[in-house]
Computed example of a mutant assay.
Amino acid sequence: MNLQHLFFIGLTGLFISYYISEYTHITHTDRVLSRKFQTKNKKIDSISTRKIIGTDELQVMDPFLRFTHYKLKKSQGLLDHPHSGYDTITYILSGHLAYEDFRNNSGILSQGDTQWITTGKGLVHAEIAESETCEILQIWLSLKLDYKLCDLTYQNLLDDDIIKATNNEGVTVKILSGESLGRWSYTITRTQAYVLDAILDDKALWQTDIPAGWNCMLYILYGEVYIEDDKLKQFEAGMLSQWDTDLTVRCVGGCRVILIAGEVLDEMIVNYGQFFMPNYPMVEKASRDYKTGKDGFEGSLEWRSKFN
Rank of each mutant, 00 (worst) to 15 (best):
N2G: 15
F8H: 12
I9R: 06
I9V: 11
I9M: 10
L14R: 12
L14Y: 14
Y19W: 05
H25P: 09
D30W: 00
R31H: 07
V32A: 11
R35D: 14
K36S: 14
F37L: 14
Q38M: 13
K40E: 15
K40T: 13
N41K: 13
K43L: 10
K43C: 04
S48D: 15
T49P: 13
R50N: 10
R50S: 11
I52R: 01
T55M: 01
F64I: 02
F64C: 01
F67C: 06
K74R: 11
S75K: 12
H81Q: 09
H83D: 04
S84F: 00
D87F: 03
S94E: 06
H96W: 05
H96K: 14
L97S: 08
A98M: 10
E100I: 00
D101P: 05
R103N: 14
N104M: 13
G107H: 04
I108N: 14
S110L: 02
T114L: 15
V124R: 05
A126V: 01
I128E: 03
A129Y: 01
I136V: 08
Q138D: 02
I139S: 01
L143D: 10
K144N: 14
L145C: 08
Y154A: 03
L157H: 03
L158A: 04
D159K: 10
D161G: 09
K164L: 02
N167L: 08
G170W: 00
G170A: 05
G170C: 04
G170H: 02
V171L: 06
I175Y: 00
L176T: 05
E179P: 13
G182C: 05
I188W: 09
I188N: 15
T189Q: 04
Q192C: 11
Y194S: 12
A198R: 00
W206G: 05
W206N: 07
I210D: 05
I210H: 01
I210S: 06
G213P: 06
I220E: 11
G223R: 07
I227A: 06
I227E: 06
D229S: 13
D230H: 08
K231F: 10
E236T: 03
G238D: 06
L240I: 09
T245P: 12
T248N: 11
V249C: 13
V252D: 06
G253K: 12
I260K: 08
I260S: 11
G262C: 04
G262Q: 03
E263I: 09
V264A: 13
L265H: 14
D266F: 04
N271Q: 15
G273M: 00
Q274R: 10
Y280I: 07
Y280A: 09
P281F: 04
V283S: 11
K285M: 10
A286Y: 02
S287K: 12
R288N: 09
K294G: 05
G296N: 14
G299I: 04
R304P: 12
